[in-house]
Write a protein that binds this DNA or RNA. Structure first.
Lengths: 221, 221
DNA sequence: GTGAAATAAATATGATCAAATTATTTCAAC
DNA sequence: GTTGAAATAATTTGATCATATTTATTTCAC
């Protein structure tokens, strides 16, 4: 059983990426190389590589002075992400719909059940994980590397803020146009899948935007 | 002595990035760590960091087996890039137009003169450089980090192929809707700037697409 | 053509040096 | 005598390199 032998830098990358994607890191939080070396018990070269990669993807942000932090989004950045997500993700979903398989549909149904369960339990962490799984299982089916990597970058940028919003507002009012997307897939109606994902994004992003505007009014920074 | 003391890994990154952006590296060409260490006379840690970053941006591609190469685009990847560029770049131009300054206009005029000169001389390298300078001087004015970083990633992906096409077809028939864009800026007509950049991209990308289809017909791989 | 040895390149560690932040001390002013 | 600001010392963190280990590929023998 020769294990896949994933390189350390890839393991560190995956670990950090998930932490950012699922809100284990707070916006504004500093990320130190030495801290990760101690915490994950690896050398510093792999850590550095992982950090450069995540910085390039927008998941982390390099300040001028050698410091790396989890970015906290401003309203203008949020609008950019909103625009880009609407431009990229529904298209990915549409392409995926044209290549749909029974396997894709059954996978998505299973995942969506878990999404619903997480919402019912009020478990933000599980919701973020399963919601991500749903979208990227769909996007992966599009077999469109370039668009998918853009989508991942956008999710990484918004991950920490999603968690923060969920923590304040709970799991009520979370978007769920997943049913409509699945219906579109089984009906081979790619434009229905397109609009389902579009609506799903709009709901989620509007949620974040409203929270951000509210927060801005409450606390000055 | 106001040297900014740019770190090695950033210098290596910038160097490699320009080489890819302006076609000094051929699609399919392997990029080795050792080679860069010898060529640029730096340690391997900075080289590794630069390579990870460029890989994350899509400028380089990691094969499964520890090899890194300059990706060569297939037709389906080209279509993805085409779609994404049309979704992102005209929007960036439009935002920039709404924040236009006299300084921006004069900068763009100067750069566009250099673009025309490069076309007249048939100097592909200079054309790629000045054309990039024109677009990103405009995009930079939008002050939209997220969209701009997506645009950069897309340019990095298509850079090597642009050079290859230019090498085969020369500088004739290269797009130049730059005049229209500048006209739109001085007229404060942001939708005119939007469509100017849109047309510019279409011309350039159609050029690459046609060449790619032709090449596919000629040589099998 | 298959398998084992050789080669070359990538991965990973720890040490060393440089830079930046934090803590501390000193000195001056009230 | 206490407070506050500036300067300096100390600690933490980042950047780079040299080296050892692992892994993929190639070469050569059978």
């Amino acid at each position: 059983m020769t294990s896949k032998n994933i390189p350390e830098h890839a393991r560190v990358y995956g670990c950090l990426r998930d932490m950012i994607l699922f809100g284990d890191l707070v916006p504004g939080q500093p990320v130190t190389i030495q801290g990760l070396v101690d915490q994950l018990d690896v050398g510093m070269t792999p850590v550095r590589e992982a950090l450069r990669r995540l910085t390039a993807e927008g998941a982390l942000m390099a300040m001028g002075n050698r410091r790396i932090v989890v970015p906290k989004l401003g309203l203008s950045h949020l609008e950019e992400i909103y625009y880009a997500r609407l431009a990229i993700e529904p298209k990915l979903a549409e392409i995926a719909a044209k290549k749909s398989t029974p396997r894709l549909v059954s996978d998505l149904q299973i995942i969506d059940d878990r999404v619903d369960a997480a919402i019912a339990k009020g478990d933000i962490g599980a919701y973020l994980r399963e919601n991500h799984a749903f979208h990227f299982r769909l996007y992966r089916a599009a077999e469109a590397e370039v668009l998918q990597s853009i989508a991942l970058s956008l999710w990484l940028r918004i991950g920490p803020s999603l968690r923060a919003v969920g923590g304040r507002r709970g799991t009520t009012n979370l978007p769920d146009k997943h049913d409509k997307a699945i219906t579109g897939l089984v009906a081979s109606d790619s434009s229905m899948v397109y609009s389902a994902i579009e609506e799903d994004l709009r709901q989620g992003m509007d949620h974040v935007r409203q929270d951000m505007i509210f927060q801005n009014g409450e606390e000055a920074d």
